[in-house]
Structures are given as C-alpha cells and as structure tokens.
Design a protein around this nucleic acid. Structure first.
Lengths: 251, 251
DNA sequence: ACAAAAGTGTTTTTTATACACCCATGC
DNA sequence: GCATGGGTGTATAAAAAACACTTTTGT
C-alpha cells in the first residue's frame, strides 16, 4: 500500500517514474432508470453486448470517452444513441476502477487499464423511445428480473438503485420523470413503485406533499377510468427555488 | 453530441477507431478533513506543489495511479505519504474529468487527458502527525481561510465539505474522528464546528443522541477544567450494527 | 460561595401515523 | 345505486424545539 519510491524524484528520473504509471481508457456506463407507473415497476435499460469482451451478454449502455469529450458528454452520447427522450435527469454515480475489473486488462494485451465512470439517469417511461439496433439488442428490464450482467455492472445497478431511492426522498427528481401535469395519485404511485408498498399512507402523502407548497393546482381535472376525476398538478420551480441546494425531505 | 461512427465497427477498423479515443492518466486527489474541537474549526490538509504544473501553489494531496494499483490504494498511499494516523474514514467523492481541467493537457503535449478521482477522508486532528517534506510544504487550513488552489481543487474542497456535513447528519462518521472515549460535549462541539452554531440546543442534542442507544456510558468521569466532570462515552458498534446500511438520521 | 460546566426535566409546537368519512364520476 | 378512485378531516402518538432548573466540580 505504500512503496516510498518518490513522486518527488520524478523530475530527474522522469522516464523511469512514468513507466510505473498506469495508462487508462475511460469508459462511461449509464444506469438508466424509468418507472412504469401503471404497472408499478422500476425499469433499467440494458443492452446486449455485440462486441469484443462478454459478447452476447446483457450490460449497461456504455462507451469509451473520446478525445476532447467530457465525461458527461460521453454519458449523454450513449444515452442519445440508445433512447430518444425530451426530458431526463442525469448525474454522476460512482467510479469503478480497480485493476482486473475488465477482461480487456488481461496481461497479454497492451497493459492498459479500463476505468468506468458510471452515470445515473432517470427518464420518462412513456415518452422514451428505444432505438432498436439489430433485432432486439436493447430492452427495459424490471429491476427484480435483471439478469447477470457483464463486467461489474450488477454492482453498478445496485448502487444506482440506492441512489434512486435517496434522490426520491431528498430531491424533486420525481418531477423529471412525470409529465408536466400529473395527478397526485400518479406521484404517489411513482413513490410507491420505487420505495415499496408501505412507505406511506396515500392521504398522509397528499397532505405532506401539498404542504411543501411546490405543487400548483392547474384547476384542470382528468378522469382515469372510473371514480372521481383527479386534479392535475404542476411542479412549481419558482416555489422550489429557495430550497435548492438546501437539505430537504420529500415524503 | 452524437457522431454515429460506430463503436460496433471497432473490431474491423480497430486502429482508426481507437485513434478517436482519449488516453488518460488517472489521478487521485484527497480532501482530508479533520476537526479541531477545542477551537471549533474544520481543517483541510493542503500541500504545496513542488512539481511541474502550478508549482508553488497550494493543492490537495494527490498522486497518479500506478500500474496494478486500485484507485482506493492510491488514495491510501497519498494519505500515508503525508500524514500518520491510526484511524481514518475514507470514501470516494467524485470524478472530475472534463478536458482542459489540467494544464498538462495542453495540445502541444502528448495529448493525454488527466482525470481526477477525488476521495474524501476524515482523520483525528489530535492524533494526526503531518509528515513534513521540505520546510513547510504541508499544512492544515481552516476551511474559511483556504487559499486559491491549483487545478479545480477549490471545487473539490467545496464538494467535499458538503459531503462532510451530510455524512455527519446521516452516519456515525463522527466516531471515527473522536477518541475512543469522549464526552457528549466533545461530540456536540464536533457537530457544531461542522454544522454551524445553531444546529441544535445542547440539551436536546444529548437527549436525541442518547435515545439512539448507540453510545455506552463507560462510567468513567473526566474533568475538563472547572465545572462538573463529564461522563466518558463509547461508540457501541454492536448496537449500531442493525442500523448499518439503513437510512438513519443523526441529530 | 460562586462560577463553570454537566446533566435532567417540563412545556409547547410541530410532524407523523392511522383511520374514518365525504365527494364525484362511470357503469 | 353502487363500485371506484379522489379528496378532507380528526384523533392519537411521537418527535423537535425552547428553556428552566438541578448537580457537581474548581477556585
């Protein structure tokens, strides 16, 4: 954990010292979630690998970072290659970079390391159009049916799901996934799908979320099948602004 | 954001395709915090750069990742080169990787990108022994007096501080920074130093933290100057175990 | 005795939880 | 008219916040 060979002597023995440094290719892997409110399911976007290592296995959509491209740009690029959306939420998740996490690092190859910066994304299920590649190289998988994934992508999905739950509780991400106008019940269903059945009582949920004062009643009503029509609400970004960056608890 | 030149054709046109990929050196930068309870100050460890870019400027202790070394190992290595501690808390913070964040990426050089994976660490102020390099190339800086730092290290410190506050509120990191046995007042001072004066009343803090049931009274008392002697408490890892991984609110 | 720090208790306000109940619509 | 989902209200319990008060030490 600590050979003391000096970084400080690096100036004089530059070549020798540089030889000890690892060379990296940097990949970006996206954990793209969506929530099928109607069915109460959380979905992850998976793609079938059709390339060199782990070919034919499901994996997260990813790519290698190109020259002049930022990490985030790369993340947006993969996303745009796989899926068409109008709105999305995207943020960095975690960086997995141990040696030996990628089979391409095999000693016989160029001795290059592969590091994966993962990104977390949330899109609208109903507006997301998958861009089919071959026949069926891409699909939404319900979280509980995700198959064994290539590389260490299982870990990444797990990590992403934890982030999703936290984000729901402490930030207004939910509104990135809902249509502009939505009923309180849809909001509730979304929370329930992600957080589990018993996270809260519907009527208490209503009270709390309305008391936050960040939802505006549009006055319009909509009928979802039988029963009394529901009011359509809108997320009020202005009203939310003061809470921005401050710790906040939703639900 | 999406040239369609294929990752998929990479097998056949490997050389041409690889040419578009960026080559990276990966750096690890540590935001090392400690809290001087007596003075109620949060401190960051800074080192004076004595090497190539931004020489003579303060920066976070960092290093480039070596062959066969994991990111975390690299983080531990820098830490061990700068400071001697018995206990510490360390976790990954964020990965900064836009092009042009490092002057070494200047177009005239090898066209190699530098990416920084930052780590967040917390150590005990009183037990931390700085390993002096030259005369004074290393120092604790109170958070509010941190000078302009090299690269994008200012951002990293800011980001790290946010993490520190969150960690204090939602996890028992505090006990990694306190001695094995500590008074409730020391715990309170620690929280106050990080979270600000008005985060809570001392007596309410006591009640809450004791009700958690994760602190054991050792029975021993200690006198800090005048006034009634205080009980020494111990963090009870067993009692805390069930809360592990579950969302939890401290104070 | 009195200042200083530790520790306890009490009161008030706010928030969470569990339900009971009324409302508006489709069939 | 009755099942279905939407929406309001109330009663109880728990947690947070404010602050008064007691206890034990050093000087």
């Amino acid at each position: 954990m600590s050979e003391k060979r000096g970084d400080r002597k690096a100036v004089t023995v530059k070549i020798a010292s540089d030889a000890a440094l690892a060379d990296f290719k940097v990949g970006v892997d996206n954990v793209i979630f969506s929530v099928d409110i109607a069915q109460g399911r959380v979905l992850v976007l998976l793609v079938m690998r059709d390339d060199d290592p782990s070919i034919g296995q499901w994996s997260l959509p990813g790519t290698l970072v190109r020259q002049g491209e930022s990490l985030e740009d790369a993340a947006y690029r993969v996303l745009a290659e796989k899926i068409r959306v109008n709105n999305l939420y995207l943020e960095q998740l975690y960086t997995f970079g141990g040696p030996d996490r990628d089979p391409r690092e095999a000693p016989d190859s160029y001795n290059e390391r592969y590091l994966s910066v993962s990104y977390f994304a949330l899109v609208r299920y109903d507006e997301a159009q998958l861009i089919a590649e071959g026949v069926n190289g891409i699909a939404w998988y319900p979280l509980n049916t995700v198959p064994d994934l290539a590389f260490d992508h299982d870990r990444i999905v797990e990590y992403g799901y934890r982030r999703l739950r936290n984000k729901l509780e402490y930030s207004p991400v939910a509104f990135e996934v809902l249509p502009d106008r939505f009923t309180l019940n849809e909001l509730f269903q979304l929370y329930t799908a992600v957080l589990g059945e018993n996270f809260s009582d519907y009527s208490n949920f209503r009270t709390r979320v309305l008391k936050l004062g960040i939802l505006g009643d549009t006055g319009e009503k909509v009928s979802r099948g039988a029963g009394r029509p529901a009011s359509l609400y809108q997320f009020d970004r202005e009203a939310f602004a003061p809470f921005k960056d401050k710790p906040m608890v939703f639900i």
